[in-house]
Design a protein around this nucleic acid. Structure first.
Lengths: 212, 212
DNA sequence: CGGGGCATCAATCGTTCGATTGACTTTCGC
DNA sequence: GCGAAAGTCAATCGAACGATTGATGCCCCG
């Protein structure tokens, strides 16, 4: 097969798209056939462009995010492979991307040759994982994390603002005993035994954001 | 003046450097004269290359970080202007960069024309601030945050793992009373009144990272 | 030299936390 | 219909937290 791999670049950063295009333009076995600034634009591009591999950023400032777009792309008939590219990730990001059907996950600071190699692997349907990503996936598969209920996430968010159980109960119009019960469940699911560790773990896993 | 602005690109992401170079190569009033993957390499490049504007990433995976490098560059005799470029920032990042002497601060998702404009402003010695950055600087100037001592930061880091005061005192070989004293100071400086809020605030400000 | 900052320490006390045990109601899927 | 999950609630009790007051010692700088 001597036809170049047709690539679609999806990233909200013009600089990054430009850099990727320049890099792949130098490779005779690869051809950038389209670019998109968010997931929606990526899906639009796929409607009238044949693509072998999509290079997808997970975090976009606005528009359809990378995980949702990945899910939709891989649900297409005869979908292209999706190689996720990102700067930094939380455990939740990695898992979400893999569950959405991405066949590869690389960090943006990977050297150009590694990136090109990952693109080729993805085109062949092989999994391409950047450093550390494989290890974290294995860890996740070994001990799958239990999902928190919506109520539990809501309580976690408020907990991070430093509210006492009593203040929480007032804000949510429930009893303090109920707050405590939810906390017991939250601690169990996160594998911690106090609120402070719960907050740190939740932020690290991307369950909540650090907004005081 | 018809000579092009001489630019030095400093970023640990090859993709980003490549994209920036491609963008500036198109502008007749700008010339990329060097690239560097970290702050140290940037200083080396400046030793034998004349540069008008340095485009500096703040976060590098390894090597000398952007803030330190900015400080050293602006301490040079007849230094080039430093325009900081980053993806995401914490309050501490912004303040550190400005205090280190940067004359501009832009987010990487800025459109190419805005970036070019910021480079021209920096070259003229004018301040170039991206969206939201100015507002946050004003907020900081209104109520400057107190810096935590190294010991306080150390204690904050361990606090985030959920350690009780007693466990902390054991790990640090100090009394529990000392731990409590440090915490009182930490709470005062962060403007909070309990450990949980302290952790959230510290993570948000970039003082510590969420590593459970 | 004196003051400020940092690190260290003690004791007291009221409040809050977390574990525990037990229970009830509603909804959904098998 | 039954069981599981989610949400709700109560009471008890020991441990831990945070505020407070007060103190000492060291180092650095004006």
């Amino acid at each position: 097969m001597n036809e170049p791999l047709r690539l679609l670049l999806v990233d909200d950063h013009p600089v990054v798209r430009r850099g990727l295009r320049a890099m792949f333009d130098e490779r005779s076995d690869m051809l950038v056939v389209a670019e998109a600034g968010d997931g929606r634009a990526a899906l639009d591009a796929l409607a009238d462009t044949s693509v072998d591999v999509v290079l997808m950023d997970l975090r976009m400032g606005s528009g359809t995010d990378g995980v949702t777009a990945t899910g939709r792309i891989t649900a297409l008939p005869d979908p292209p492979a999706v190689l996720v590219l990102t700067v930094y990730d939380t455990d939740a990001d990695i898992l979400a991307a893999v569950e959405a059907g991405a066949t590869g996950y690389m960090l943006k600071d990977s050297p150009p040759e590694q990136l090109a190699q990952a693109v080729r692997s993805a085109a062949r349907g092989e999994t391409a994982l950047g450093p550390n990503v494989a290890a974290r996936l294995f860890e996740r598969l070994r001990g799958p994390e239990e999902a928190l209920s919506p109520r539990e996430v809501e309580i976690l968010r408020m907990l991070g603002q430093g509210l006492s159980n009593r203040a929480l109960s007032r804000e949510l119009f429930i009893s303090e005993a109920t707050v405590k019960t939810h906390l017991v469940h939250i601690f169990d699911k996160l594998g911690v035994d106090n609120r402070t560790a719960a907050i740190t773990t939740a932020i690290q896993r991307g369950i909540i954001r650090p907004t005081p």
